[in-house]
């Protein structure tokens, strides 16, 4: 098709005029309207929520292991039968092991004998995630330090990096060592690291973690540390509390009332 120079200039001029008009707001500029993407996804806003736990060691006394049994059952945690290859998500430590840098001089002997409930602290500055070469372990949008077992290569750098011993390694296939399979959570395979996940599989359904609901003494409080009106924040404000090894700057999300 032939088009002479004059015709071309006429059309180009009209086009430029239309563009100017749109810029000046003479014509509605449909193409320039921002896309409303709010309906596209329900992905959470990173950092809005920070899950945390408060352990009241005054209520968690004696040899009760209700929460440990419930957690390890629900998450298919294997029992290999000896401490060397023990896998644990939540366990009890002696006071001085849990708080090795806390002052114990002239401390109340009852406190020194307490068995303190310990688990992954879901640190705000987690050294474990920085050590992981595959980004298998990572800090989630809601403060939970999670392990993507699909990606874990079993190098155990994270275990060396964690100052709290929160991580365990599966030296053998864990399946035959699970007493009763639970359908609430997958198992792991040989050669991956595992630890507490703050029951993220329950949180997504709006349920509290398994340990929290299993405690008959109500010793565990769980909630959003970023919400000043949450129960956990009110309890933190009303009580003297401790974190484990605070001097390391990991900013644990698990707090203790002694």
């Amino acid at each position: 098709m032939s088009q002479n120079r004059r015709e071309f200039l006429k059309k180009a001029g009209l086009g430029a005029l239309a563009g100017l008009g749109a810029a000046a707001g003479l014509f509605p500029a449909f193409a320039l309207e921002p896309t409303d993407s709010s309906g596209f996804t329900d992905a959470p806003v990173p950092g809005k929520v920070r899950w945390g736990m408060l352990v009241d060691t005054r209520k968690c006394l004696g040899n009760c292991t209700e929460c440990i049994v419930r957690c390890h059952h629900d998450h298919n945690v294997p029992d290999f039968g000896h401490t060397k290859s023990e896998v644990k998500w939540i366990w009890k430590s002696g006071y001085e092991n849990a708080f090795p840098t806390a002052s114990t001089q002239f401390q109340n002997p009852e406190v020194l004998e307490r068995q303190v409930l310990t688990l992954c602290n879901h640190c705000t500055e987690p050294p474990c995630t920085k050590a992981c070469p595959t980004e298998a372990t990572f800090k989630r949008w809601d403060g939970i330090v999670s392990i993507d077992y699909h990606r874990c290569i079993g190098c155990r750098f994270c275990m060396a990096a964690c100052p709290y011993g929160s991580r365990s390694f599966n030296w053998q296939d864990p399946r035959p060592h699970i007493k009763e399979l639970s359908n609430t959570y997958p198992t792991r395979m040989r050669g991956v690291v595992e630890k507490c996940n703050f029951c993220s599989e329950r949180l997504v359904k709006g349920e509290l973690p398994a340990c929290v609901v299993s405690c008959a003494e109500n010793a565990l409080t769980f909630g959003d540390l970023n919400d000043p009106n949450s129960e956990i924040r009110k309890m933190l404000a009303a009580n003297e509390t401790m974190q484990r090894k605070p001097e390391l700057g990991t900013l644990p999300s698990v707090f203790y009332i002694i």
Partner: peptide, 17 residues
């Protein structure tokens, strides 16, 4: 349906639409 739903957790949890 799941029991033991905590209102506080449910409020802070992103629910599937």
């Amino acid at each position: 349906a799941h029991a033991e739903v905590s209102p506080a957790v449910a409020a802070a949890t992103v629910k599937p639409g």
